[in-house]
Nucleic acid binder design. Sequence first.
RNA 1: GCCGCGUUGGUCAAGGGGUUAAGACGCCUCCCUUUCACGGAGGAAUCACGGGUUCGAUUCCCGUACGUGGUACCA
Length: 507
Amino acid sequence: MSNKEIRVRFAPSPTGGLHIGGVRTLLYNYLFAKKNKGKLILRIEDTDQTRFVFNAEEYIYDCLKWCNIEADEGVIQGGDYGPYKQSERKEIYLPYALDLVEKGHAYYAFDTVEELAEMREKFKTKENPSPQYDANTRMQMKNSLTLGIEESLKKIKAGEDYVIRALIPQNETVIFEDAVRGTIHHDTNTLDDKVLIKTDGMPTYHMAVVVDDYLMKISHIMRGEEWLPSTPLHVLLWKQLGWEADLPTFAHLPLILKPDGNGKLSKRDGDRLGFPVFAMDWKDANSGEIVKGFKEMGFLPEAFLNLLAFLGWSSGEEREIYSMKEMTELFSLDRIHKGGAKFDYEKAKWFNEQHIKNMTAQELLPFVKNFYPIADTIKENDLLWVIDTVKERCQLLTEFWEQSFFFFEDPESLDMDSLKKGWNEEKELFFKTWIEEIKKQDLNNPDSWKDSFENLIKEKAIKKGAVMMPLRVMLVGGKFGPGIFDITSFIGKEKTMKRIEKALTAL
RNA sequence: GCCGCGUUGGUCAAGGGGUUAAGACGCCUCCCUUUCACGGAGGAAUCACGGGUUCGAUUCCCGUACGUGGUACCA
């Protein structure tokens, strides 16, 4: 095992967009592969069932691109053991299933959906509300065990629908190692005869992963904890197919839970609680509704990955803010937690804030531009300067515009309540006088503006605080924003006077 | 119901037989700033419970509770 190449894979669910749980799984796989100079194989499961009307592929690649890991050719790999789309692999699986039948580890079953429901109803008791297709029931069903193999083959030849089910052995204990949970024991008597090949000839997930992982020479399987209960089946299949020597290492990742109530975080929670749960905007193909993504909410990709990494893993250091490169160096399976983590949007934003702070205006520029409605009309140097002066007060990329629009546009509305508070003739006179002063003075930097303002304060013997706040509101519209004279200096005399006059008339 | 997995402040978590049980987010107080933030200094708040084992358990074992996942011709 030690000199075997590290090969991991990521198999996004075809049922929806790239949920943060999925991105985290992808991220861990990526970090692990990258750190160990291995390969990450993308295994796209595009089932052809009508209710999964979309194809995840394009979206996945967009997400990878945004996260800036799409071009990492050394790590992300198609290559050697394709094709990687499940639909293109359809014919691969049946022979293995037949092999299992031949060896007595699987059998044909002809029960219809109705008959299965009937069986479940019939065997249902208080103690066992969901009877399984297993040792207790299989001999009372329509399958090659009860019908005999010849009769069964005859039915198949006649074109009857059938599935292939695993024949789970009795009274055995499946034991396997999980890199995050240690040794797992599982009694085979609690397993059911899972369908391996469906009526339509397509494999179920169980059959598909086992065969694919073997064929693609996967060395480590990292996936969500929800797969833990079916892992014994997978291990059994590996053995029965004669591949035990190549059994990969499993690592089941803790679940990401809802911040409030209980349960796994779902896309509904995002709407309900006002935060994104998808990497990028995701349009539900059935309902047409759009679910917000981290990208569009104003997260930096690296911050997004950073915060995700720390939901279920920790570096062991006090530090929490890391670049991808640093995370790659530090990542290890044994520091993945066992317990589920509740998602905390406040902390998520804090991660983003920290990354923003650590970046230069130049680095931030391409990201901020996307959220700046008039970016094209602004000189790059001006924009860089603005980014630099407001980045300390932005948690999200969307806030750059909110925190700096007044450099370029007059505020549409003023916070009149703050303005009127304590307003009097003395103040009015002060501002009127100042406007006149401004005209005469040579003001070309924040300090000269400040001097001008403060000189007049001294002259009029007015309290600075009484007049600073109104000025701010006049210029930006409310009680927020960077240094007031940085603003006047940037927008210049004309706009400053105009905004003051406008406010004065409104008062 | 049954089976699996888990449980350190409100949240993310370090630690792991003897500690004043780190740190971060959030919250509160103060300082800075006559705005909002940033920053700085403090503060409140934690080992789910019960039994063992041990000189000593948050740490190891067993139960219980709670949570979570599975129990589909979904992944």
